[in-house]
């Protein structure tokens, strides 16, 4: 049994109380949501915090998927399993269900949360790639109820680093809905079910009268953070979807990413996957947008 170093533990009763505790305890405290990233690190003694503030009781307050005409709002405490099982979400953004099917395993998905995933900011993290693909923004709340909204690009500061400050909480993700026909998809190559991505890619397209009005691609595990690639969007906009176009997008993806060789695979292979998966997810997203 791997055992963590000693720490104090407190269960938060409200978002503002949690923020109050963070404010008081500073950098020596950490929020624990699903715990599936934080606890393994503490048991391996890669992370050592004096205080843990458990926000699982805030699931009532922060666990939700709300649809309106203009956007989808998802609470930070929404669990992987809820994202996987939500038919409403699968209807508007099937990319979520695609991704959730290949994130970890049922045990991890029962507890792990959207907020925890994004805040962990692991370069191979899948939901960050999904949120990047969908041009999501993140709602961060701080002391005194102050809220700020940042884009995914602003949210990710570096590997394992986000824009969330020491006494702040990520409360919500907002995903814009556009008027056009939308389609999205996610694909991941892993060495084994439940493994982190060798590379994964998400794609979303919006079509109007057969033409692409907007398209986005988000990649995971090929750089310091999950990356959105504006050049792909620019290359696709205004065109009719075609294999040639997907090929162009794939080539841009391969050239724009920055993978490293590790036990999951060589940098060359990952670059190849960025291309391959970009083409696959775009194809699928278009197919879905059309149907």
């Amino acid at each position: 049994m791997q055992v963590p170093a000693p720490f104090e533990y407190e269960r938060a009763t409200s978002v503002d109380q949690a923020i109050g505790l963070l404010e008081r305890l500073g950098g020596s405290a950490r929020l624990v949501a699903g715990g599936h990233s934080l606890l393994p690190m503490m048991k391996l003694r890669l992370a050592d915090f004096e205080y843990l503030i458990d926000i699982n009781d805030l699931h009532g307050e922060l666990g939700y998927i709300r649809l309106s005409d203009g956007e989808v709002r998802i609470g930070a405490m929404t669990r992987h399993r809820e994202l996987l099982e939500s038919d409403v979400l699968a209807e508007v953004f099937p990319i979520f269900r695609d991704a959730e099917k290949v994130i970890a395993d049922p045990i991890v998905r029962n507890r792990g949360t959207l907020g925890g995933s994004l805040c962990q900011a692991d370069p191979s993290e899948d939901l960050s790639a999904v949120c990047t693909t969908l041009d999501a923004s993140c709602v961060i709340r701080g002391p005194g109820g102050a809220e700020r909204v940042v884009t995914m690009e602003e949210f990710h500061v570096g590997p394992y680093e986000t824009a969330v400050g020491d006494s702040e909480i990520l409360t919500e993700i907002r995903i814009p809905r556009k008027l056009e026909r939308a389609g999205s998809a996610y694909a991941k190559v892993e060495r084994r079910a439940g493994d982190w991505a060798v590379v994964s890619a998400g794609a979303a397209v919006w079509l109007d009268r057969g033409r692409i009005v907007d398209a986005r691609v988000g990649l995971a595990a090929v750089g310091p953070n999950t990356t959105g690639i504006p050049e792909i969007s620019a290359a696709l906009r205004g065109h009719e979807p075609s294999e040639e176009l997907f090929q162009v997008a794939g080539a841009i993806a391969a050239r724009s990413c920055d993978p490293v060789t590790d036990t999951r695979g060589s940098a060359d292979y990952k670059r190849h996957l960025a291309d391959e998966l970009t083409r696959r997810t775009l194809r699928k997203a278009v197919e879905r947008a059309r149907s």
Binding site: R191, G265, Y269
Partner: peptide, 8 residues
């Protein structure tokens, strides 16, 4: 024979 090695 991981995907990366098969690709090689």
């Amino acid at each position: 024979l991981t995907p990366s090695r098969v690709w090689d």
